[in-house]
């Protein structure tokens, strides 16, 4: 039972982390109609910046804040220099152009930081375990990820649903020409939204950094997961992204830890040990395929057009 609770918390933590990535992706998707494959590169940059700044300043928190600012700036720069020109183009152009950006960022990181990965050590006050429920110990760092991401998610909700900027963002998502015609500086708005998405991706990257190694290509696997989430949730829907991210987080985590046991009950041990790793990696893709077959627009399609 203890293990089950721990795995559920892991699922929650992973889901919320994925939400940080997927939220930015779905905002950019929904508002600028841009398929941004380079989102994973921003996640990677967040992790690299955090590792560098933390080592430089000697403080984990300060390093994280600087990394967040740096990712935000890189994101806005990329938008202004390159991606702005891709709006209104075919999705194929987006895929290709941002694929080029992935190659560029991967190689730039290799050039600057070298081919070996970095590590981001945790400060001692986070590198402990705390009691979350009576008798249940849980990693303080993973727990703090849950707390931080929940705060960010709430902040995002307030920003999008309760502020003037959020109103413009929502208006831009449903009809960009009209918002432009009403005298809103849509270019600036887009740059800000893109920067916000980049910062969220950077946040996910820097929070994941102490758990995994910081390495080139770390953004590519998780990018696909984030895309799966935006598609399951319905493109442009932040609420859908949250639901889908939690769904994916739980299914992936619980699938990996319990599927082998379940299969062993049903099949021979040999067949189970062959099938389990493949099947647990496939689960979320299977989920997405099933969702799309029954709801081709995702669970929470943001009613556009």
């Amino acid at each position: 039972m203890t293990l089950f609770i721990e795995q559920c918390l892991n699922g929650l933590q992973f889901g919320l982390l994925l939400f940080m990535l997927a939220a930015g992706l779905t905002l950019v998707f929904g508002i600028m109609d841009l398929v941004n494959l380079a989102h994973g590169s921003l996640y990677m940059l967040g992790a690299y910046f955090a590792a560098t700044f933390a080592a430089f300043t000697g403080s984990f928190i300060l390093g994280a804040v600087l990394a967040l600012a740096a990712t935000l700036l890189v994101g806005m720069a990329v938008e202004v220099i390159a991606l702005r020109r891709l709006y209104g183009r075919d999705h194929l152009d987006h895929v290709l152009g941002t694929f080029g950006l992935i190659l560029f960022f991967d190689e730039a990181v290799r050039l600057i930081w070298g081919p070996e990965g970095l590590s981001l050590p945790l400060p001692s006050w986070l590198n402990a375990s705390i009691q979350v429920l009576p008798g249940v110990q849980y990693s303080a760092y993973r727990f703090s990820i849950i707390v931080v991401t929940l705060f960010v998610a709430a902040g995002l909700y307030i920003l999008v649903m309760r502020t003037r900027v959020g109103m413009l963002i929502r208006a831009g998502a449903s009809n960009r020409e009209m918002v432009g015609a009403l005298g809103v500086n849509i270019k600036l708005l887009y740059t800000l939204v893109f920067g916000l998405g980049a910062a969220l991706a950077g946040l996910a990257g820097l929070m994941q950094a102490p758990i995994l190694t910081v390495q080139i290509g770390m953004g590519e696997n998780i990018l696909i997961l984030a895309f799966v989430i935006t598609v399951i949730g319905g493109i442009g829907s932040v609420r859908g992204a949250l639901v889908a991210a939690l769904l994916v987080g739980f299914i992936d985590t619980l699938g990996r830890s319990y599927l082998p046991d379940i299969l062993r009950e049903l099949l021979s041990p040999a067949a189970a040990s062959t099938l389990a790793p493949a099947l647990s990696s496939m689960l979320i893709y299977l989920l997405m395929a099933i969702v799309l077959i029954f709801k081709p627009e995702g669970l929470f399609a943001a009613g556009r057009k």
């Binding site: 895929v95 493949a278 893709y285």
Partner: peptide
């Protein structure tokens, strides 16, 4: 959605042979 679902199926095939 078409881009992503074709990608998903390819990833499934990838994980099957990896396993």
């Amino acid at each position: 959605y078409f881009i992503m679902i074709t990608l998903a199926f390819a990833q499934m095939a990838y994980y099957v042979v990896s396993g």
